[in-house]
Design a binder for these strands. Sequence first.
DNA 1: CCTTGCGGTTGACGCAGCGTCAACCTCTAC
DNA 2: GTAGAGGTTGACGCTGCGTCAACCGCAAGG
Lengths: 252, 252
Amino acid sequence: MTRSIQDVARLAGVSSRTLRHYDQIGLLPPSGNGPGGLRHYDAAAVRRLQRILLLRDLGLPLTDIGRVLDEQADEAGALRRHLDQLRDEQDRLARQIASVERTVTAIEKGEQLMAEDMLDGFDHTQYEQEVTERWGADAYAKSDAWWRGLGPEKQKEWQARTRELGEAWGRAAQSGIDPTSDEAQALAARHAEWLGGIPGTPGSERDRPTKEYLVGLAEMYVADPRFAKNYGGTEGATFVRDALVAYAERNL
Amino acid sequence: MTRSIQDVARLAGVSSRTLRHYDQIGLLPPSGNGPGGLRHYDAAAVRRLQRILLLRDLGLPLTDIGRVLDEQADEAGALRRHLDQLRDEQDRLARQIASVERTVTAIEKGEQLMAEDMLDGFDHTQYEQEVTERWGADAYAKSDAWWRGLGPEKQKEWQARTRELGEAWGRAAQSGIDPTSDEAQALAARHAEWLGGIPGTPGSERDRPTKEYLVGLAEMYVADPRFAKNYGGTEGATFVRDALVAYAERNL
DNA sequence: CCTTGCGGTTGACGCAGCGTCAACCTCTAC
DNA sequence: GTAGAGGTTGACGCTGCGTCAACCGCAAGG
């Protein structure tokens, strides 16, 4: 007994378009063709469709479904791999949600801060802009002339130092110590020194950055996710910022 | 001072293609055009780009970003709505993961079961759908009519009972007893009874949930962090799940 | 002067999984 | 004879770009 495309569609709860699509991509060819190209499906095809839909509902991509069904391939394995992807996705989502939540509260708090700033006549925006632009210039100087001038040996040293610094910050932030503690301040000093090593950093002639530059940069670590992630996300970056700001106020 | 497209791209860590795309969809027109149609970007454009990327990293669709930036529209509001979508997605994912996990274990437990499933794939699909959809319906029924209908007094009672149950689970999980032990099974019975108190629960006419529903719910406690935290994180939730599954197999 | 190379431009296809027309065919019932 | 149900094959649309392809302009080097 064979069925028409609409029959099968209703039976399985999908559209006939879907069935045609599956035919087109070779996932589910009809069991036969009637006059005028009419597709019809026998029981085997219907069973195949059931399996397809089962796997599809589990979120497996159609190409994977095809492989699993055609090559008698390891179904459980495919699902496990898929599960890993789903979990990764779940992770990503969770982090993103946290991120958005933080941003929302920051904005809502920030509106108050903004209002205050306006009253003070202090232009928050301009200050931010300056730092941003400065950073662009720095990246330029750094990557272009200076970096190449270092040579491979020194480049590796530099990279290692950078990585160490980031990891040290990460550990410090995790450990729950205070940003103004001696430990954290020592790290801040290292950070300032490290920055001073980059030509183009304002103040680097005197071997350490200017106060304004350091504070601006610190704020950016928090505000810009691409930096924040080097320091363990917003939380880590917040710690770094607090430590750097404290350091700048005291020593620069 | 204006920059070329490559400058800006490197500065912001995106491809020049992306910038052209943003121009094309009107999200970020360059500040000016040089000879030969060369795009160049001033500081304002760069700042706009920063904001775009920030929101993009939060997962906001480009069209929404455009609206927010152009119409000075309610940024926090947009993010909140986005947050709702993210949470829905998280829900979906959690359920899907639970589903895939069940399927994988089912497959690995025995090809026998699987063979049966294949022959009547309908059952499986329907069953799964039922659990998923039912749960949605439950949350609805629960929060809307029933809950309000209880009145403040009964509501407090209910909350207390819910909290007690959660705490009891927490203690049981901590104590290291076996999920199949009498103690744990007694808790599972309480849990089932508690569930039966929520109208809309499949099987609640008979004062306790159906087996399928309980098992599905139990899996979700593990898969969905928002549930898991009510039961002491993933570990606690795992304990709860194992106890509930054992209970369901024996008594429902 | 010619070539190379870099950096820029504008299309246009591709991906995943169909929804949604559009234009046309065929069979049956009235 | 004609309407209607059910079928067919394209082909575009959606998201956010990556990835050619084909072409242009300008500066340095042989």
